[in-house]
Simulated assay, not measured.
Amino acid sequence: MSQSSSSDSVSLLLVEDNPGDVRLIKEAFKSAGFATTFHTVSDGDAALEFLREHAASETSPDLILLDLNLPKTSGFEVLEGIRDDPKLPSVPVLVLTSSAATEDVVKSYELCANAYLTKPTDPDEFADIGRAVEAFWIDEATLPPLPS
C-alpha cells in the first residue's frame, strides 16, 4: 500500500450488521498478522455518516469492508452514496457479503465496488479472507493518498 506498509496500522471501516460476522472478520484480520484499526458500523446510514465525518481527516479509513444486506440504507445504496458524493474520499470498497448471486456481483461492480468477496460458510475460512485482503490490498496494491 502506498501510504503504509503491513507493519503500520491499517484503518478499516467494517459495515456489518451481524455481530457474529463482525467477530469472525476481526479475528481473521488479527490472525493474518497485521495491525488493523477497525471502525465498525451496523447499517448503511451509519457508514455514510462515518465517511462524511471523517472525509478530510487522518481517521478516514484505508479500506471499506461492506456487507450488502444491511438495515436502513443497503450496501448498494452505500456504494451509490460513495460514488455520487465528490466530498467523500476515494477509499477502496470491498464488498464482503453472503450473496453469491450474479446480479449482486454485477450491480456491485457497476456501482464502483473494487472487489466482491463472498463470506465463507466455514468460520475457519474467514482467516483466508484476512490473508487475501492483506496480501493484495495492503501489501501489493497502490491506494490513493489520504486527503490533506
Rank of each mutant, 00 (worst) to 15 (best):
P19V: 07
T142V: 14
H54M: 13
E134N: 08
M1H: 11
Y116R: 12
A55H: 13
R83L: 08
L68D: 01
V41S: 04
S5T: 15
F50M: 11
S2D: 12
N69F: 03
F76W: 04
S7D: 13
N18M: 09
D21A: 11
S2T: 14
E49P: 00
A101K: 12
A46P: 01
H54N: 15
F50T: 02
S4T: 09
L70I: 01
S7V: 05
R23C: 06
E53R: 15
T59R: 15
A35V: 06
D124F: 04
D43Y: 07
T37A: 15
R83N: 06
D85A: 12
S99V: 01
I138W: 00
S31E: 12
L24N: 02
R83S: 08
N18C: 11
S6M: 10
S7W: 02
L111Q: 06
L14Q: 03
H39D: 07
F29I: 07
K26L: 07
S31A: 15
Y109D: 05
L68Q: 05
S99D: 10
E125P: 01
D8F: 11
T121Y: 09
R131L: 10
F126L: 07
S7T: 10
S74Q: 02
V95Q: 02
T118M: 09
P92S: 14
S74P: 07
D45G: 08
L111F: 07
S7N: 12
N114R: 14
V133I: 14
D67F: 04
S11I: 05
P19C: 15
T40A: 13
E134P: 00
D104H: 11
T102S: 09
V93D: 02
D122L: 12
F34D: 07
A56H: 11
A28M: 08
L14G: 03
A115C: 11
F126R: 05
E125H: 09
S98I: 08
D124L: 11
E77K: 09
L24Y: 04
L48I: 10
A115F: 05
A135W: 06
A28K: 00
S108F: 04
A135Q: 11
S74F: 01
R52K: 15
E134I: 04
N114V: 07
A46W: 02
S98F: 02
Q3C: 05
D45H: 07
I25G: 00
G33I: 10
F34Y: 15
A141W: 00
P89W: 05
Y116E: 08
P61V: 06
S148E: 13
A127R: 10
Y109R: 06
D17H: 13
A46V: 00
T73F: 04
T102F: 09
P89G: 10
M1G: 13
D45P: 00
I129T: 09
S31Y: 09
D21R: 05
T59E: 14
N114T: 03
L24R: 06
E27H: 11
H39L: 09
I25A: 14
L88F: 06
P147G: 13
S5I: 05
P19N: 14
R23M: 13
D128E: 13
S108K: 05
S6E: 12
T36R: 04
A32C: 06
